[in-house]
Design a protein around this nucleic acid. Sequence first.
DNA 1: TTTCTGTATCGATGTCTGTCTATGCAAGCT
DNA 2: AGCTTGCATAGACAGACATCGATACAGAAA
Lengths: 122, 122
Amino acid sequence: MLGQDDDGCCPALLTAPMDEGQAVGLAKVFKALGDPVRLRLLSMIASRAGGEICVCDLTPAFDLSQPTISHHLKLLKQAGLIDSERRGTWVYYRLLPEMTDRLAAILADRPNAPESEARAHA
Amino acid sequence: MLGQDDDGCCPALLTAPMDEGQAVGLAKVFKALGDPVRLRLLSMIASRAGGEICVCDLTPAFDLSQPTISHHLKLLKQAGLIDSERRGTWVYYRLLPEMTDRLAAILADRPNAPESEARAHA
DNA sequence: TTTCTGTATCGATGTCTGTCTATGCAAGCT
DNA sequence: AGCTTGCATAGACAGACATCGATACAGAAA
């Protein structure tokens, strides 16, 4: 979905000029992250112990209507950042770490970057 | 600008619920990345040998007007992703790797992530 | 100074997006 | 069956955004 380069992994963002198609795919994911509400939703989902959280726990955390929250969750899901599963009455959302890992790799892979030690925490 | 946590480095996105202020700041940066044209501009700037590129080399690479390219460059600059310098007639843009490194660290730092080996390339 | 070229800003316009209310659907309960 | 609750979808609307042409500004050259 993001557009693959030769090694079948990730489109190069910072090390080589990106073509239109790759840019469109990658922009979709970043656009999904470009809203404070969706960022907080993703944060609540990812940080939840157990790896998943019920929509019923997400909705009351915001000063927004339930359909609005549902809409944002849909966009995050379409971006490949989260997935959902219905269990009985409730729907649970969980992080898809493959996507965030991929974005991290794309952003860390730049010319002259320290080899495998580009993480700012270190 | 992104909102700092206790260690003075990065807001936690995936390991702890993010507060409103942090989310607003971080969303601004991701929103800047959420457009195919800006992504390609950033890619051309970052991948350029020498670390910088003239606007005069960027503009003709797109099927867009010069003011539109200028506008996108402004947004990338306001997001802290690039910086510019005028030298004579021409203006040169360069990547600010601190910001992309920061985003990479934020996205790589998730619960149960393999220690310092979260890069998808490996 | 005048002119020319490269870049940024301004104002207008069409499209996209975040939000709402109203409604539909799914699942459990009585 | 009917009711109730949790979540998603549909349609509407205001504000934001990408794009354009026109114009202003900066620097070099004549």
